[in-house]
């Protein structure tokens, strides 16, 4: 499998706070890789650093063979990265359709935009019913669907999902995770950040465990589920 995204010894700061202390993560083409860890471990910070919303002080981020660590978010998007941010980032006063159009802002071909929109609707038929509605009026689950559909509008090589299960009813969490698996089977590489470690490890191929800005364990998902430290800290087992 070829290496799609690779973080090498990344250090990121919020002001003086040393948030990421030398993170190295590899994602191969076709994988689902998950980052698990508790609140404040640095999971979202890792994604924000990858997508250019913050820049690392040290280290390199290679996407498709290109160093993106100093690029701006809108250029990184063009390099093939989709980021569904924490809290979904739906534009509340744009309609569902306009939200999706924004996802394809850099695409000029109207036909391509429509095709991808239809693809999104085929994954989430519910969105089609809501197409003229403002994003802010959707339920949490619908917003998450919209955020994922929007993230797919640029047909990214790798889609990063930040806490897709946050605030959703269990049945919706199942639905969203089913879709993530489907997407992966259709060829999209996934980097998934989750607090719901059990769900994340059930669909992921490999996982990294973060603690206070450092990776403490990395292994295949199956092995992580058997790891006593992981079981104790993140899976709620004694």
């Amino acid at each position: 499998m070829s290496l799609l995204l690779s973080l090498n010894n990344i250090h990121s700061y919020y002001g003086h706070i040393h948030a990421l202390k030398g993170i190295s993560v590899d994602v191969h083409k076709g994988e689902i890789v998950t980052l698990i860890g508790s609140n404040g471990a640095g999971k979202s910070t890792t994604l924000r650093t990858i997508s250019g919303m913050m820049h690392p002080k040290e280290g390199s981020i290679i996407l498709n063979g290109k160093d993106i660590s100093k690029m701006e978010p809108h250029d990184i998007v063009l390099a093939g990265l989709g980021h569904v941010p924490e809290g979904r980032g739906i534009f509340p006063k744009l309609t569902v359709k306009e939200n999706l159009e924004m996802g394809a802002f850099t695409v000029n071909d109207q036909k391509v935009i429509e095709e991808r929109m239809e693809y999104g609707f085929s994954l989430f038929p519910r969105l089609k019913e809501r197409v003229g509605q403002y994003g802010g009026t959707l339920s949490g689950g619908e917003q998450q669907m919209l955020a994922i559909a929007r993230g797919l509008m640029l047909n990214p090589d790798i889609l990063m999902l930040d806490e897709p299960s946050m605030g959703l009813a269990p049945v919706l969490v199942e639905l969203i995770f089913d879709i993530i698996e489907t997407l992966n089977k259709k060829g999209t590489t996934i980097l998934l950040v989750e607090q719901n470690a059990l769900m994340a490890l059930s669909i992921a191929h490999r996982g990294y465990v973060l603690q206070t800005g450092e990776i403490v364990v990395s292994d295949s998902a199956a092995n992580l589920k058997q790891n006593t430290m992981v079981q104790k800290a993140y899976l709620g087992m004694d």
Partner: peptide
């Protein structure tokens, strides 16, 4: 639309390639 998107959520707008 991009102006409205930036007005509503600047960080997310940049993730759209804006």
């Amino acid at each position: 639309k991009a102006i409205r998107a930036v007005a509503q959520d600047r960080p997310t707008a940049s993730l759209m390639g804006i």
